[in-house]
Simulated assay, not measured.
Amino acid sequence: MRSRFSLRPFIIITVILIAAMFYSLPYYVSKPGMAKELEPIINVENGQDESGSFMLTTVRMGQANIYSYLAAKLSKYQEIYPIDMIRDKKETDEEYNARQLHMMEGSKENAIETAFHKARLPVHYRYKGVYILEVVPGMPAEGKLKTGDKIFKVDGQIFDSAEKFTDYVRKKHVGDSISLTYSRDGKTRQVKMALKKFKDDPSKVGVGIGLVDDKDIITNPHVKINTDEIGGPSAGLMFSLEIYNQLTKEDLTKGYQIAGTGTISPDGIVVPIGGIEQKIIAADKAGAEIFFAPNEKGAADSNYRAAVKTAKDIGTKMKIVPVDTFDQAVRYLSKLRQKT
């Protein structure tokens, strides 16, 4: 009998500890992820080989439980973010992940466009509609539409780009209704909503959805990028460098292991990202010798300055290179001596 009662506290504590693993806190934790070579991921038809490699860098991001929260508090290179800094309060994990994957698709398109323009090769698009990237809380679309829905008709008219959709809605007024035809899980649906003013910008009206084009990019030579479940836009700069390197005869890697980060715009502007400190650690562990960091035109709190500080803290020999544009990165690599 005494034996049975002595086990009870142990069982209770065990149950509590296990339950704590599954109890989610209203925070996200980010930690160093991986640095992954891009040549196996990106294939340009009849592309050139390279002696070194370009690498994308990632962070591992997940909603915190008690243990991961405490571990992040004790770690210098893990960050804790309130949940509303990462996703809307009513946005599900599924919707958040879908938004990240759509952002990755946009990053690929921008990278291809940047690299092909630099190589003076044409790029064409085949538009198929628009995807919902986010739903604004408190607006008419909340509870009716969700991230990942594909809209292909508005008031019976076909709009093949987000820009055309926005232009159409912009001409309407508060209280006007629009009918949206969309697909979800392979099924076609229809919903009617009245337009409303946006709280953060009363001069604009809408139903409260952020859109991204659903389009195929057409190039010659063909480019295939296989990112699996990697989400977000921050690999854009490194994508564009890898694509351009395969398009041209000169090998920009010169035998070096080159990592970096930064969103890329279609015109080649490098945009800052989050988690630069964790990405420096990931790149260093992977043996990177050069790391491109968004310079933000020399801002005091730029990604580049944070990257330099982290590199110094961990004692890496990796060279941190500031860039504001894709062209700056290419110029830097063109001046490198071939590694022997």
Rank of each mutant, 00 (worst) to 15 (best):
R189K: 12
N226F: 15
D228V: 05
F198C: 02
S177M: 10
V207A: 04
I218D: 06
D201P: 02
I178S: 01
I230W: 06
D214P: 06
P221F: 12
L180K: 02
V174M: 09
H173D: 10
K192H: 02
V169T: 03
A235Y: 11
D185Y: 15
K215E: 05
K187F: 12
V205I: 14
I209T: 05
K187I: 14
F198A: 03
I218R: 04
P202G: 01
K187L: 09
H222L: 15
I218F: 07
S234E: 07
S234V: 10
S183R: 05
M238H: 14
I178C: 00
G186V: 06
D200A: 04
I178E: 06
V207E: 08
K199I: 12
D176A: 03
G210Y: 12
G236K: 09
V207K: 06
S234L: 09
K204P: 02
G206N: 06
V205M: 02
G206W: 13
L237A: 13
N220K: 15
I225A: 04
V207M: 11
K187Y: 13
S234N: 08
G236R: 08
V174F: 07
T227N: 11
K199W: 07
D185G: 08
V212I: 15
G175T: 05
K197W: 07
N220A: 10
D185V: 07
H173M: 09
K215T: 03
D185Q: 14
S183G: 01
K192T: 15
K224R: 12
H173G: 04
I225V: 15
G232C: 10
G231A: 08
G210T: 08
N220L: 08
T219P: 02
K192S: 15
V169P: 00
V205W: 07
L211Q: 06
D200N: 11
Q190A: 07
G175L: 06
G210A: 12
I217Y: 09
I209R: 01
K172G: 02
G186A: 03
K172Y: 06
V223C: 04
E229Y: 15
K204R: 10
V207D: 09
H222A: 14
M238C: 11
L211M: 13
D200R: 07
K199T: 13
P233R: 03
K224W: 04
Q190S: 10
K204L: 10
S234Y: 08
V174Y: 11
R184V: 03
V191F: 01
S234C: 13
D216M: 03
S183Q: 10
V174K: 10
R184Q: 01
K224H: 13
M193A: 06
P221I: 10
V207W: 12
K224Q: 14
L180D: 00
T188K: 08
K215M: 10
V223Q: 05
T188V: 14
K196H: 13
G232W: 15
M193N: 02
L195K: 00
H173V: 05
V212F: 05
R184D: 00
F198P: 03
G236N: 07
K172W: 04
K197L: 06
R170F: 13
I217A: 05
G232T: 11
V212S: 11
H173L: 07
I178Y: 04
G208H: 09
I225W: 12
K204E: 09
A194R: 12
D214K: 00
G236A: 05
K215F: 04
S179K: 11
D228F: 11
I218Y: 07
P221W: 12
S203I: 01
K187M: 12
Q190P: 00
I209Y: 08
G231T: 09
M193W: 04
I209Q: 02
Q190F: 01
